[in-house]
Amino acid sequence: MKREVPLVLTFLMTLLRFLFEMINPLLNYEISEGVMLFSRISFSVTFMYCMGLFMGLINLTRVHGNTIKRRREHWIYSVWLLIVLYGYAILGLFFGGLESEAFNWIYDAVIVPLDSTMFSMLAFFIASAAYRAFKVRNVESLLMMVVAFIVMLGNVSLGNAIWGSESWLGGFSGIKDWLLAIPNAASQRAIGIGVFLGAYAAILRVALGLEKRYLGGTDW
């Protein structure tokens, strides 16, 4: 039963969701006056999202609780993580949430700037990585470098100042647009179709019970 019930549930839910998309009257089907069947399904998904969040909270607490208990390397960061995790959750739940100045200040003055800083550091890493790794060793790498330069210049005003969009071939910007719209779009389509077929096969395997690793454990 431990094995069969999740497999049957997975199959039924996949089939149901598929049918909702395939059969329009089913999507609009009302189980009673003004109550749609799909809205009930949708709320069950929302409930699962919330439960997933709760499970994540428990899991993080267990993992980092163990790290603290056994004084593993960098355990002090686990203490900090749990303080931030529970502190922010408590502040949001019991001290006004979005109406709380402290709650909003933490988001505006800590979370957003930290997020931006992490992303901004990419500029430095990319500069350093491009300098160290972008070496012309053969014709292919030369071609890649030329294309990279055109796309970079086509994206910024400096490229426009050197070879403007009103001049021959539309300047760097015109060539960049052509590169993105024709060769790039063609390859993106090929990649997209490949990814979709792979994902479709993986979902089909899960729905039909051929893929069981998501259930955890090792006895199947």
């Binding site: 300098y131 970079m152 210049l153």
Partner: peptide
């Protein structure tokens, strides 16, 4: 952004 891109391109040229 223009200056950042220019520096990256210059680095690639110098490196090569």
């Amino acid at each position: 952004q223009s200056m950042g891109h220019a520096w990256i391109m210059l680095l690639v040229i110098l490196g090569n």
